[in-house]
């Protein structure tokens, strides 16, 4: 492998993420841990959305639903005294996948605007379900304990929590990388590029798109469970359509249909939010135009601006 600018960028990103805890501790700014945890969690959400949006052309405007499912899986099990992460994470993954299967099975029968609206509608239903569940805090949300992994992993230790999140990010990147280059990934990308052709050469594309939709849901569910762990608090806001929009902006910002773009997008989005909030409370006034300019001039987002020696996807 030659050191193309993109490989260098990947290396820098991962090294920076890896050294945040010692650096933040040395600087006496533990807050940075929390900030970068959020970046990594939203990166996972954006990576999962990019699987279906960027590679599969499925414009899901309801991806925040799975953040909520993961979050509530942690909170509700903790509420009933089941604090084990060995329960929380498998339940999150299976639960998110099943709900994504259900939502996908219906919405993938449509396309274009209808698909966007149906995915949005399902997520709004889940949002209002969350609001109406008084037992679990309703509108106000619910406090939760962090997932326990016996003596193996102690998420109340800040560094452990950080590297636990980092580990999930690496795993999601690995899965995503293998997936998009596998036979399965070729079907998903082919169906985006030219679905009529895919069907004519014999692919029943629906089932593959549905499977991708479920995998993306499960992955985003993990992001939700992680978010519940760092904030120790879950509210229906996890599933607000505004959230779905933010995740989508991260994907577009970083670069649709690229592996590292969503990570870059999540980082730039949350860091800019952090910086611009210092300037004005209405930080979107500045962010909005920047985003528009980027989308207009860089079709593949920030990732697309980094030159690649070969004309290939990262």
């Amino acid at each position: 492998m030659r050191a193309t600018p993109r490989l260098v960028a990947i290396a820098i990103c991962l090294i920076v993420l890896a050294i945040v805890p010692p650096v933040a501790t040395a600087m006496g700014e533990p807050y940075y841990l929390r900030l970068f945890e959020r970046i990594m969690i939203f990166a996972i959400a954006a990576i999962s959305l990019d699987l279906i949006l960027g590679y599969g052309g499925m414009v899901s405007f309801g991806h925040a639903a799975y953040l909520g499912i993961g979050g509530y899986a942690v909170a509700i099990f903790s509420y009933y005294g089941v604090g084990s992460g060995w329960v929380h994470f498998p339940v999150t993954i299976v639960g998110s996948a099943l709900i994504a299967l259900f939502i996908g099975a219906i919405s993938l029968r449509t396309s274009g605007m209808y698909f966007i609206m149906i995915t949005l509608a399902f997520t709004q239903m889940l949002y209002f379900l969350g609001v109406s569940l008084e037992e679990y805090g309703g509108d106000d949300g619910i406090n939760t304990d962090r997932s326990g992994f016996a003596k193996l992993i102690d998420l109340y230790d800040p560094w452990t929590l950080y590297y636990f999140t980092f580990g999930w990010l690496l795993l999601c990147l690995l899965i995503s990388w293998r997936l998009v280059n596998s036979r399965f990934g070729m079907v998903i990308r082919g169906a985006f590029s030219n679905e009529t052709r895919m069907q004519a050469i014999g692919f029943p594309t629906y089932r593959y798109k549905l499977a991708a939709f479920a995998i993306a849901g499960a992955m985003c569910g993990v992001a939700g469970a992680l978010l519940a762990n760092i904030t120790e608090f879950v509210t229906p806001e996890y599933m607000h359509w505004f959230r779905s929009g933010e995740i989508m902006v991260m994907v577009l910002l970083g670069g649709m249909g690229t592996l590292f773009g969503p990570l870059l997008g999540a980082a730039v989005f949350l860091l800019l939010e952090e910086v611009l909030k210092e300037v004005t409370q209405h930080w979107q006034i500045i962010f909005g135009p920047l985003f528009v300019i980027l989308v207009l001039f860089a079709r593949r987002g920030l990732w697309g601006l980094i030159p690649d020696r070969e004309d290939r996807d990262g």
Binding site: L179, R183, G185, M186, I201
Partner: peptide, 24 residues
């Protein structure tokens, strides 16, 4: 890759999620 995709369509199911298709 275009032709390989057509071959793949007739080489059993495509729920193969891990191995690289372009080196298959």
């Amino acid at each position: 890759a275009n032709v390989a995709l057509a071959i793949q369509a007739h080489a059993g199911h495509s729920f193969r999620l891990w191995r690289r298709a372009d080196r298959d």
